[in-house]
Write a protein that binds this DNA or RNA. Structure first.
Lengths: 232, 232
DNA sequence: CAGTGGTCTAGACCACAAG
DNA sequence: TTGTGGTCTAGACCACTGG
């Protein structure tokens, strides 16, 4: 009696089983889609779907003509969900509040103008604001917005609408990059976050752009103890 | 003259265009797959593929019977590649080296035995090792391995094979979780990483398991200045 | 050149959940 | 109950790339 694998989930599970059982070892080729579909008694498209998903998750390596092999060093791919801060806080069952600390047009430091690819004498909108959970500082953002890319931003009252959400809803983005790092709380960080100087702080630097222009750059500095979590 | 969208990439691009152009606004329903396939002049499966990918990336929300809508707060999903440490260092063009600092069987602290779901009197393999880039400390790992889940580990010479790579190749895992955080370098951290006490360090805590057992738990503590980077 | 994965199609049935 | 997305199938053609 031979098992049937008529759904791509079942096929995927069977492939995983063979990899885990080392019937197919790291670096080895596995049979091609046509053979597998015959063996499993399903359509090739079903096998394709299963293998494609496994390849996307890094467990298989596939190349046209060369075939499919079990990845030698399965690069683990973790998917991070980066929610709107309000949702993140409320998702923990805490009350969200927000406070704008400063908003002004100014010429950015050269590090910022360089990364945003604008001339150093162009004024940008600079916002500093604090997100609180149950009234306690949770994270503060230090943000630069390009008025060339987003002229409407000049007329928004960011003491009422937080920049994070306003941008998400009003400015479509096409790409971005994120970097995560650690830093020590300096005097100003400690003051804003109501913590001690010298504490270890988790930091996210993000920039987003449309096809041709950088829209915004932001540094999120989290209060001590923050952990970002995900599953594999 | 009407454009044709006969590949799922083209369909996806068109859907993205409509979202960016606000023809379809956040929170709004979009037409169902059958209608779209007629409009685009392609098969429903093609539309399905395009929309499914967009939903997976968080831009659309789909529910059976309820239809498809543009996500109100597009949760940005970033994919982190978590490579083998050797590859990460060599990928930067630096020379990789490795040093085992300690290896012993011992009973873990209760925090560890609890998270690994083993009885507190069970001995685990405890490894501390350092990865260096061009001879300078890059990251050190503090790892616990379950000898119940991986008995072969007892006989491995981890001064020659680093645990990171040995586990990847020899022990298939089924799941895991990762947490990222920041901490301050204590005395021992500073000693191992050749840095000052009080520096801000980036930390990754990871645990991996098979269906029923926790295999290993590891804390990776990076030298000051480390940044983890990805794109959106 | 030829074998592999990548994709499209037309049609079908199913699972789920809103009304 | 019924409309929607989720999936499967059989067949076809294409794109890429190793030999």
């Amino acid at each position: 009696m031979k098992a049937e694998f008529n759904s791509w989930h079942a096929v995927q599970a069977e492939v995983l089983r063979r990899i885990h059982a080392r019937e197919w070892k790291p670096g080895e080729m596995i049979p091609n889609e046509a053979d597998l579909s015959r063996e499993f008694g399903c359509a090739r498209a079903t096998v394709n779907r299963a293998l494609r998903e496994l390849a996307k998750s890094g467990l298989l390596e596939r190349r046209r003509r060369a075939g499919t092999r079990v990845a030698m060093h399965p690069v683990r791919k973790a998917t991070l969900n980066i929610p709107v801060i309000r949702d993140e806080i409320q998702g923990k069952g805490l009350a969200y509040s927000y406070s704008l600390l400063s908003a002004e047009r100014m010429r950015p430091p050269s590090a910022v103008s360089a990364r945003m690819q604008v001339a150093s004498d162009v004024e940008l909108l600079h916002l500093v604001s604090l997100h609180l959970a149950d009234g306690k500082p949770y994270v503060y953002e230090n943000r630069w917005i390009s008025l060339a890319a987003v002229p409407e931003a000049a007329n928004v009252d960011f003491s009422r609408h937080n920049a994070n959400e306003w941008l998400v809803v009003n400015v479509p983005f096409e790409g971005g990059d994120i970097a995560f790092s650690a830093m020590i709380a300096g005097e100003r960080d400690a003051e804003i976050l109501s913590c001690e100087q010298g504490e270890g702080l988790f930091v996210i630097d993000r920039s987003t752009w449309t096809k041709d222009e950088t829209i915004t750059m932001v540094r999120l500095t989290f209060a001590p103890g923050y952990r970002m979590h995900t599953e594999l």
